[in-house]
Design a protein around this nucleic acid. Structure first.
Lengths: 340, 340
DNA sequence: TTGAAAGCGGTACCAT
DNA sequence: ATGGTACCGCTTTCAA
């Protein structure tokens, strides 16, 4: 079609007025037709003319103008931080997106890396979202919550481990994963448990709470938990394995199966026997755990389906009010195999 | 603060008019002050009063109103499909986001799963983005490109393997990964090469082009490529390994290191020797490849840094025109280890 | 059945 | 130095 190189003055963007002019009707009529507004009766002939004109011009309505006029949006904002979230969260986002789309919301992920929490909240509020879902890696202050509410957000939801004053919380508490692993190891008689906490940025968001959960579960039973910082790096793992015996630990929980594999390999190279000398438990139930020898015992975090979450958001939007609710989206379960 | 349960009539969202009233000035003055507009000279006292009023009211400007007035946005739209993109793309997105933020663009990821390509393009156009970056998994038709351009998008960029008529293309051609693997295997004397192409949805986006690239490279050399469909599943891998010898292949390229691990384990359980009987090459250079025995030879896809991409977008936005450019973002390189 | 016009919130021109 | 006001594109009464 338009083979011409772009003009220095680009063709103006067609508006509903242009459509009206081309179809020989008023802007009001254009609006009625294109929105299938049934309260007004428009003749079939006019309908056709308007639609044709819109198509010919390549007319697309201006979302900002529309929502400005309407006084509200159907935008659900999902801020995203600089580093990607843990996989279970990704899955929630993906399902949530689909569920909200079905309910006719517009889901927008908004890059907010590098902003201070309150700045970020203001930036989100500028978009006048009807709901905001804050991921675990980003923080929302009570002030931020207030700004969003005052700017018209009918649902403010956090997905982190700890709820924010006044916001609804859908807790994905990764601490339960660590706690679950430790309880399993305690049941098997382990008393001195190392927890591999990656220093890595990518893994950090889920690792820190998992370590925390492990620690608390151990404390409650009077057992010992020792944090083992480890880079995702063969040399670092070999180093850890080399001086293993002097730590006198009888079990390790790695916050992730991939770290478990790394450590398992290092143990094997160093002659430390798994599970004989040390029990090993990973997390996330990745396929690779099944392929290792010994097969890897792991903790699987199961996420509640996100469709109800989408419906909760919709309910909050249509009927706001009621006290903040807290739900737990995550349930942890041990998948026992051979390593521990 | 507002401990009261939400009123049936929620407090109205404060506007610049409210700020003006509270500060005892006009809306114009409010605008000047809050935008640090230097062309107008505003007394320091007034400035302070306005800022204070804005803070007290929790005023946040309305992005839609602003861009409506301005006639343009600084929104760069990154549509996202239903299934997540391959990791290298994720990285590009993440860097791109940071780069564009530095250039003062607003990056918005817009969930577009389940829409037909042309519908999707219209939905994108409604947001009047100044630039659109279409990921590999989504398709853009020439019509879609035209709609976006007509609605004011100054840069339309595709990241897929094949360029779209009239759009700028930043090619991330995964075919090169497959071709690279095959060339390596050919150089080592292999002539009958199996290519594991996951039936899985998650891996499919990058796997299909990788298979395609492998095929073409083999054809050129008169070698044979045999696609090996494989689910990410131990039983399926065992099945493949059990009847391995009758296929008489001397090499396998798996479109991903994880599949390579799966297959390697199956080979070992079935007594097929790697690399003695069959050479094995993976892709993506995951850490686990280094941990396998034999260590996994792999193809690493290196992505050009995204900062220049952000700058390209900025250049296209500020000075549109010029013919569509094509850049290649991906370079593949073999990391030779022990498996093939 | 259709059209004229007000107004959503913010910006920028032109007065004062 | 500040205020009045037109206008961006769209929807929605109200009148014809």
């Amino acid at each position: 079609m338009s083979q011409l190189p772009q003009q220095p003055t680009p063709a103006p963007v067609p508006t509903s007025a242009d459509v009206a002019r081309l179809a020989g009707v008023s802007r009001a009529t254009v609006s009625y037709v294109l929105n299938n507004n049934t309260t007004m009766r428009i003749s079939e002939a006019t309908r056709r003319r308007v639609k044709e004109a819109a198509r010919d011009l390549g007319y697309v309505p201006h979302a900002a103008a529309r929502s400005l006029r309407a006084g509200r949006t159907r935008t659900v904002l999902l801020p995203v931080g600089a580093v990607p979230e843990a996989p279970p969260h990704q899955q929630v986002v993906s399902e949530l997106q689909a569920g909200l789309r079905r309910l006719d919301y517009t889901v927008v992920q908004y890059g907010s890396g590098g902003l201070a929490p309150d700045e970020a909240a203001r930036a989100w509020a500028e978009l006048r979202p009807v709901a905001v879902v804050v991921p675990p890696a980003l923080s929302l202050t009570p002030y931020g919550r207030a700004v969003l509410t005052r700017s018209g957000a009918r649902a403010v939801i956090t997905l982190g481990a700890q709820p924010v004053d006044g916001a609804h919380a859908l807790v994905m508490d990764q601490r339960e994963v660590g706690a679950c692993a430790v309880r399993h190891l305690l049941a098997r008689g382990c008393r001195r448990i190392g927890v591999v906490a990656p220093a890595d940025t990518v893994m950090a968001p889920s690792a820190a709470p998992r370590l925390e959960g492990a620690r608390r579960a151990a404390e409650r039973a009077g057992a010992h938990v020792e944090p083992l910082p480890l880079r995702y790096d063969e040399d670092d793992a070999a180093e850890l394995a080399r001086h293993w015996r002097r730590r006198a630990l009888d079990a390790v929980f790695t916050c992730n199966d991939e770290y478990a594999m790394l450590l398992l390999r290092a143990f094997q190279d160093a002659g430390v026997e798994v599970p004989g000398e040390v029990a090993l438990v990973g997390a996330d139930d990745l396929m690779l755990g099944r392929l290792l020898r010994p097969r890897l015992t792991t903790v699987r975090a199961e996420i509640a389906p996100a469709q109800p979450l989408a419906e909760l958001i919709d309910a909050l939007v249509t009927r706001p009010g009621g006290p903040p609710e807290h739900h737990d989206l995550l349930r942890a379960r041990v998948v026992p195999r051979e390593s521990g």
